[in-house]
Design a protein around this nucleic acid. Sequence first.
DNA 1: TAAACCAGTTTATTTTATAAACCAAATCTT
DNA 2: AAGATTTGGTTTATAAAATAAACTGGTTTA
Lengths: 102, 102
Amino acid sequence: MPESKLFKPLDPLLHSELRLAVMSILLDAGSADFVYLKAETGATSGNLSVQLDKLQQAGYIEVTKGFKGKMPQTVCRITDQGRNAFASYVEALRSYISSDNR
Amino acid sequence: MPESKLFKPLDPLLHSELRLAVMSILLDAGSADFVYLKAETGATSGNLSVQLDKLQQAGYIEVTKGFKGKMPQTVCRITDQGRNAFASYVEALRSYISSDNR
DNA sequence: TAAACCAGTTTATTTTATAAACCAAATCTT
DNA sequence: AAGATTTGGTTTATAAAATAAACTGGTTTA
């Protein structure tokens, strides 16, 4: 949707239910591991894995792979860029949903 | 994303940039024609046509085809169901973006 | 030691969004 | 008045996305 005076474009990376949920959690928590994110969002492992990759490639999160005891652990941390992108996305959303803006 | 305690599901029909923009306009205006919606959203005719069909099939808008002078005119009007769906969508969104909800 | 489980990844399938191509009728041009 | 252009769309094709299914490598349990 190019060139609308009324509506700001919605960052497609954040305009996704699961990615938005992940970012929402990380915005609060700062960081969280794969298992936690999976439980809180209710997502499948496969879907979560793919979406985390996308957020990482966008620079919105950092992903660190390590171990917790003997088990693998994937920890995700939100970046400053991620926080900024989230704030911009919310701001853009307001152009669609807040009636005081119309 | 089934079964999350933190996040409400986002109606996929509304979680779309162009469809959301159209609904946003109609929520205010009550009704608007194809040409106006196209201009305000900046969408292409093809994209708009397809997305209006989806909104109509969902029962979120009514589409009436007629003429304005000699030229064809497609008028869209938001339904009560559409208003309710929009309100629910905004409410669900808050579970992702409003920090006072977390 | 084999069955079940955990923490993920990779691959395949389905859905979606979007653009490109097209169409009929109206209007403008010469 | 004939052809070219514009208007108001629809249909079809393509690209991108979301999602699920299948798989892997290692671990714990029976």
